[in-house]
Each structure stands twice: as C-alpha cells, then as structure tokens.
Amino acid sequence: MKHVTSLRIGPVGFRIGSAWRAPIDALDDLYRDYPRPVIPDFNVHLFAARPWRRYLRPSVHIGGDFVIPDAAPLPLAQALLAAEMGMNLQMALGQRGYLLLHASGVERDGRAVLMTGISGAGKSTLAALLMARGWRFMGDEFILIDPATGMAHAFPRLISLKNEAIPVVEALLPHARFGPRLTGTPKGTLRHVVPDAPAIAAMAEPAAPALILFPRFGFDPAERPVPPSEAFVRLTQASTNYVTLAERGFEALTDLVARAPAIAIDYPDTATGIEMVERLA
C-alpha cells in the first residue's frame, strides 16, 4: 500500500492503506487527535480494481480483513466515506470481542443512554446535539457491549450527518471541525463532524448502560415504555454480530435489557427530541 495511516476509535485499532494520498490525508486531518494503535485489530485497504483506474475515472474499492463480495466502488471524491465504510465493515463482520449494537450513545455521570432505530430516526443528530449540550459523545454508529462486564464501550468515530441534518448541526455546533461536504453519495449528501475533545479524551472509558431509547423522527411527541422482551428482540435486529457471538451475545443482551429500562419516543423536531431525552435520562 502506498499510503498508510492508523488510528484507534474507542477500544478498536485500525490500519488503513490506500492507493491514493487524498483519503489518508483526510483521515490524518480529521482523526489527528485520536491515539494510534501499536498493533491494529483490523486492516482496511482502498484500492483500484485495475492499475489504470488509479488515474482514469478513479474508483475506490473497499478491501480489508473482512469484505462483502461485489460491493460497489465509490468515486475518489468520496474516498473518505469509503474509508469509514471499510472500518464499519470490519466491525460489523469481524468484531468478536464485544456485542455490537447499531446505535448512538451519550454519557453523563457514568450513565450511558443508547439510542437505536432505523435510518432517519435521528440517532446521529440527537447524539451530536446532546454532545453540544455537554454530554459525552460515545458514538453514532456502534455502541459496544462487553459481554464480560455488561458495560457500554464508546466507538466515537467521526459523526456522519446526512442531508437535512447537516445545516441543523452546522448551526448548533459552529466551532466544531467539519469534513468536506460529500455530494451524490449512495446516502445522499454527507458531512462528517469531529467529536469534541472530551469525547476523544474519554473514549477508552466504558459507562454503565442506564437507558435504551428507540427514537422516531417526524411524529407527534409520544412516549411508550418498551418491555424487556420487546427491547431484546429489537436489539437482536440492531446487532450485526448477535448471531455470531451465540451464547455470549445472548447473555450480554438479556443482561442489558434486564438492567436498563427501554422507552420508545416519537418527536416532531430536534428541540423536542433533545428535551425528551434529557427529561428521561
């Protein structure tokens, strides 16, 4: 690999190699305050399918220790997204130490609030805005549950904002560091935000899961307690490695829903959403 960098997000180390300089420079800039692993847990490589495609209509293929066959390549302008997708893929397919929940999370006074829901539920936006209000940001894609302790571990990668969420967060976090605006991606327009300094400084510190939220955006305000049985089933669907972890996954998840209450919340706008989360937490 011509260009290489490495970085640690929460407890997980990555080595990223690329046939192009640009994505490595972007990562080194945006992740400049993150520690570097001595030995990475996972490798990601960004490569051209044919040598000439490095230069001619360059298209970025995502490789790594774990890959999906026939994944569509991305244009070079979206290589940062390719790197992020590559890291997410290693986690989703290869992580065996923690139960992965597709969720965002924030923490205050050692109590972690986990938010999970379908794409568009506002997981990332809520977590970013709570960070702006002084919560410790734990992650907007994955929260890691340690089967041995039941504790939630942070995975505070760059916050990935999509479409309408971008101007909302830009307005509320004027001093945050933003990545380039990526237009025309498979998910629409994307922009990354670097988590704030406290989130990075505390990223190795786990927190006890205190509340599980299932937010839905665009509905009249409503709250409904979710019984542990339903929370369990919904979280199995939100986990990418629940089946692979087998008994350890089952025990981690039953333990989680037994110790943390779950509430489904509907919210019409982000201000109401934030108010609801802070009241319930």
Binding site: P11, G13, P37, V38, I39, P40, D41, Q95, R96, G97, T244, L245, A246, E247, R248
Partner: peptide
C-alpha cells in the same frame, strides 16, 4: 503486546464458538 493479546483473545473465543 497488549494489542496482540486482544486479537488473540477474540480469535480464540471465535474459534471456540
């Protein structure tokens, strides 16, 4: 090294499963 130990630990858990 500690980082290597983590990889080893996860690989063993995975192989046992």
């Amino acid at each position: 090294p500690e980082d290597a130990r983590r990889v080893v630990r996860d690989a063993i858990a995975s192989a046992e499963q």
